[in-house]
């Protein structure tokens, strides 16, 4: 196995994912519309018009729109990660997965490539979203947009790995609705995407605890700090840890001998 093999395989997977993303116009549009609706309808209707108190990384008072923007970037990646998992199920059902899995390259590599491909797509979506947000004066310093890239890569990988892990449990396509209800929504609502931790603490101790342990919260915080050119080390470590955990479990899950695959009669 030469390095070239690896490269070509990865290129193929990423290329396929990007191609799929670009050709499925509805998916691209829906990926953008969802956070934009939140930004302009939800945030506007929500009336935190008097500004949110200062908490790092912000240096001054901010409007609610500004606060939820990193959370919505996280939302894009969360949906994208889950959608990738849907595509895995789809691939599995259609049999193209089988084709991939029988390639001589190691399975972990293929799955990682898949994750990178998913993260790449989500980063593309996030930047387009931020570009639109920029027109509404939701802006970060330019350094922030640069630092955002590695942060988004890590959070994208982490959320993708979570999706991959979940997909190893899902038998059929229809179960994506279940993922929406039982994974995406709880993760999103019980996080710092919509409200800062101190605000959650004011209303409920349980919610505060759930939100602070929610890996999605930490991903959002990593994005939030990166947008302002800062590194939140705790969030970085937490997200990295979660990524390693989820991806290892996913690899185990997809391994034909001991994973879910075997039990599901695949592989």
């Amino acid at each position: 196995m030469s390095l070239l093999h690896y490269m070509r395989a990865m290129q193929g997977i990423i290329g396929r994912e990007l191609w799929r993303f670009i050709t499925q116009r509805e998916r691209f549009i829906s990926a953008l519309v969802r956070p934009l609706v939140w930004l302009f309808v939800f945030a506007a209707g929500f009336r935190a018009a008097l500004g949110l108190a200062i908490a790092p990384p912000y240096d001054t008072y901010i409007l609610y729109e500004v606060y939820i923007t990193p959370g919505l970037c996280g939302m894009i990646q969360l949906f994208n990660g889950m959608q990738s998992s849907l595509s895995m199920v789809y691939d599995r059902e259609m049999g193209s997965m089988r084709l991939l899995m029988v390639s001589p390259l190691p399975r972990w590599f293929l799955l990682l490539s898949k994750l990178l491909a998913g993260a790449g797509v989500s980063i593309l979506q996030v930047y387009v979203f931020l570009l639109i947000a920029l027109m509404y004066e939701i802006e970060a310093p330019w350094q922030g947009y640069l630092l955002l890239f590695p942060a988004l890569m890590l959070t994208g990988l982490m959320l993708g790995a979570l999706g991959l892990l979940l997909s190893s449990f899902i038998k059929q396509l229809e179960n994506f609705a279940g993922v929406m209800n039982f994974v995406i929504f709880p993760m999103f609502f019980m996080s710092t995407a919509l409200y800062p931790l101190w605000k959650l603490k004011e209303s409920s101790k349980i919610l505060h605890a759930l939100a602070s342990y929610n890996p999605f919260s930490q991903a959002v915080e990593l994005i939030r700090f990166a947008m302002y050119g800062q590194v939140n080390k705790y969030a970085l470590a937490y997200t990295l840890g979660a990524f390693i955990l989820f991806s290892s479990l996913a690899i185990v899950g997809y391994s034909p001998s001991k994973g879910m695959m075997a039990r599901k009669g695949m592989g």
């Binding site: 790092p56 990384p57 310093p141 350094q143 922030g144 630092l147 302002y228 050119g229 800062q230 590194v231 080390k233």
Partner: peptide, 11 residues
């Protein structure tokens, strides 16, 4: 210390 890029840049 979280001496960050932004603060330096801003400075």
């Amino acid at each position: 210390m979280k001496k960050c890029l932004y603060v330096v840049g801003l400075g």
